[in-house]
Design a protein around this nucleic acid. Structure first.
Length: 292
DNA sequence: ACCCAGGAAGCTC
DNA sequence: GAGCTTCATGGG
């Protein structure tokens, strides 16, 4: 068992807020499956206890964004008492740095769905296409690589069998499109995705977003999730129905505002760390009652 | 039975 | 461009 000192970090909020889907809590420990890795973690005050199926402290610090100056981020987005209230309710929540491929597939599959269902769908995909991985007595299935998915004859059909519904077409087309690029250059599908994502990382935010939106099943919201949750674009402001409601209630006196306008407002108002503001608002808005 | 869920794409006007 | 419909499926 390893241990690191932490501050301005709340493991429970970070794991449970809905940004990642493949986790479970067993007798006080969080077991997170991230890509082909299992993370076992528990927080006690200013200490984080953890075990990994591979990697060490460097991975943990990067995965939970522990190196980011939290107080600086907070002071940057805390424009008023409304967001202040949301920040207070979710203090310690940090953005997780997900594997881009897993993040892309997960959020393409999130369209008009809900978190419990997305979790089931991603676990089904992993059992169907991934491989068994272990940490001690705990067993899970890796999130499948592009190759593991492309092995089967009819990816869309298999994905429908995993409960993805109409989203299966989007995401099988998306994978085929990106993998196709590599075939001509004799690259593996994984390398093709790596090239694609590192290409996006080098762009500025608007260009990267436009580029992502060329992918089947990736619109404005999903693009923002991929950018914020896996590619380090913290100025993204993913705007789903909950965020749209929160923005309408807090900043437009209940007026019915479009997702597009809510997103523009969020980006302009909260600035370079808008993604954190978004997570705080999401957490706050979805809390069962007692939102203050 | 009815409604909605971390939306996007393909229409119409 | 902004508004409407359709796309599966599970849960309340």
């Amino acid at each position: 068992m390893r241990k690191i000192r932490i501050r301005d970090f709340d493991l429970k909020k970070t794991v449970e807020c809905g940004q990642i889907f493949r986790w479970e809590k067993i007798s006080g420990w969080y077991f997170i499956t991230a890509g082909d890795r299992i993370i076992k973690a528990r927080q006690e005050g200013n200490f984080l206890f953890y075990e990994l199926s591979k990697g060490g402290a460097g991975f943990i610090r990067n995965y939970f964004s522990l190196g980011e100056d939290y107080k600086k981020i907070i002071s940057g987005i805390k424009k008023d008492e409304k967001i202040g209230k949301a920040i207070k309710s979710a203090y310690g929540l940090r953005l997780i740095k997900q594997e881009p491929f897993e993040c892309m597939v997960s959020y393409i599959s999130s369209s008009a769905s809900n978190i419990p269902r997305i979790r089931r769908n991603m676990n089904s995909l992993s059992r169907r296409f991934g491989h068994k991985i272990k940490l001690g007595n705990y067993t899970s299935y890796s999130f499948p690589s592009p190759e593991e998915m492309l092995k089967c004859e009819d990816l869309e059909k298999e994905a429908r069998n995993c409960g993805l519904g109409f989203r299966a077409r989007f995401y099988s087309k998306a994978i085929a499109a990106i993998a196709e690029v590599s075939a001509e250059e004799k690259l593996s599908a994984s390398q093709s995705f790596e090239n694609y994502f590192s290409w996006l990382r080098r762009m500025n935010y608007p260009d990267a977003k436009m580029e992502l939106m060329n992918i089947s099943g990736v619109g404005s919201k999903v693009a923002n999730c991929i950018l914020a949750f896996s590619l380090g674009f913290k100025e993204a402001f993913p705007t789903d129905v909950w965020i749209r409601r929160a923005i309408a209630e807090l900043y437009f006196s209940q007026k019915n505002i479009s997702a597009k306008d809510a997103e523009r407002f969020g980006r302009e108002y909260f600035g370079q760390d808008a993604a954190y503001a978004q997570e705080f608002l999401y957490y706050w808005r979805r809390q069962p009652k007692a939102k203050d």
